[in-house]
């Protein structure tokens, strides 16, 4: 039972996000940075998935027929677009409140997403598997990164892939992503990120490799204040994303 009792849920984090849940879909509210960040991460995911599965990214519903898990889906900022692109999306979040908001919003938009208040461990235990597992801006909020990533990796089907996006544990990230974003620019509520919970790329790659996946792409993401938009960058010191694939059976 010791393994089954192991959890990736950090209750304090779940409570913090639950408290802000009503604001998920307000593009000018507390989650504004995530709304601004959405196009760049969606483009990255769409283009990589289209490359892997031989789809045309300019086509209507290019992800048709692919089963995708959005773990830590929050209010569904990622799940809804993925479903509109044609994917069969399971949005999972530890917060019942988030799932409630996400369900209500998807119903209003008329986008079908299977939202469940469930943990990654529970899904893995139930034998669920996916073509794509999305871990976007989540690992810096879980309690056991190693176990969380191993669990998520176990649900990636042969020929499938997983995406991880997070913030690096560097002094630059502490200055920009935490101090500047929370205290100077006030983009994020104070306490959104804690330095010690940030994750270095090698801490992500190790468990993924151990689970039989191969990291095939890494990129930094950088905010250009002049253009008021996010761009891909070689610099992975602050925000970064990476992709790992499981070989076909």
């Amino acid at each position: 039972m010791s393994e089954a009792a192991r959890t990736t849920i950090d209750q304090a984090e779940v409570d913090r996000f639950s408290a802000m849940a009503a604001e998920w879909w307000d593009p000018t509210g507390k989650f504004r940075p995530l709304h601004k960040f959405n196009p760049i991460r969606l483009t990255y995911i769409r283009d990589m998935v289209c490359g892997q599965f031989g789809r045309d990214p300019k086509a209507h519903r290019p992800l048709e027929g692919l089963r995708i898990l959005d773990i830590g889906c929050g209010g569904g900022l990622l799940s809804e677009p993925m479903a509109r692109m044609g994917a069969d999306v399971l949005g999972a979040d530890a917060s019942e409140k988030n799932i409630g908001i996400a369900k209500a919003h998807a119903a209003g938009s008329g986008v079908p997403v299977d939202y469940r208040a469930v943990t990654a461990e529970a899904l893995a235990e139930a034998g669920e598997s996916f073509d794509v597992v999305l871990n976007m801006e989540v690992v810096e909020h879980v309690s056991d990164v190693d176990f969380f990533l191993t669990t998520c990796a176990s649900m990636v089907r042969p020929g499938g892939m997983t995406f991880v996006a997070t913030i690096n544990r560097t002094m630059k990230a502490a200055a920009l992503a935490i101090f500047a974003a929370e205290n100077v620019l006030r983009w994020l509520p104070r306490g959104t990120h804690q330095y010690e919970k940030l994750v270095r790329p090698e801490e992500i790659e190790k468990p993924l490799n151990a689970a039989g996946l191969t990291v095939t792409d890494r990129t930094g993401v950088f905010f250009n204040p002049l253009l008021n938009q996010w761009n891909l960058s070689k610099d992975m010191d602050v925000n970064y994303m990476l992709v790992a694939r499981r070989a076909s059976a």
């Binding site: 000018t28 601004k36 483009t43 290019p62 479903a83 692109m85 938009s109």
Partner: peptide
């Protein structure tokens, strides 16, 4: 068109801001 290809809500202010800028 680009927002729609990403599955984004084409009426959202966060999408339309790009046009305005």
């Amino acid at each position: 068109v680009e927002a729609d290809r990403l599955g984004l809500d084409i009426g959202a202010v966060s999408v339309l801001e790009r046009y305005e800028t």
